[in-house]
Amino acid sequence: MTTDPAKPDPKPSRLDPEAMPRRDFLGIAATSLAFGACGFAAIGAARMPKAAVLPSASKKFKVVLPESLPPGEPFFPPGRSVALFREGDRVHAISTVCTHLGCIVKPMTGGFECPCHGSKFKPDGSVQRGPAPKALAWLSVHAAGGGAVMVDEGTPVPPGTKETL
């Protein structure tokens, strides 16, 4: 607030407060509007780095398991990080993306192992040793007719979920 140094303020009265000078009011209003606008713009800009639709390729794919696939043996559809198993007419899919740091696990006798930090998993995906914090994800599988199955890499299901063909 501006004061006149030549004339010291008389004791302000509680009942008759001095009106805020117009310039002060306009200054405060303009400053708060400016900050408000910046804040509003910042909130808008902060939404920008995440696109509404992620640009990754479709996570669903259709595959026909080979007739000769023995029970308990994994089948790796080409181009996908998934292992498919068939026991009788029941099929399930396990993701081969390591839960530690995202490397692709390889099959070994009695499960999977990760080349990056040596995590080992049992055939059902549960952790046997190494730094992986959780089991390999089981993925949603559906019969797609004609012996084919539709696998959805984007939809994990509880371990043990199998689909009857």
Partner: peptide, 13 residues
């Protein structure tokens, strides 16, 4: 991870 990659995998984004 999403902010860093702009996607859920390492790709063009």
């Amino acid at each position: 991870k999403l902010i860093l990659l702009g996607s859920d995998e390492v790709g063009e984004e």
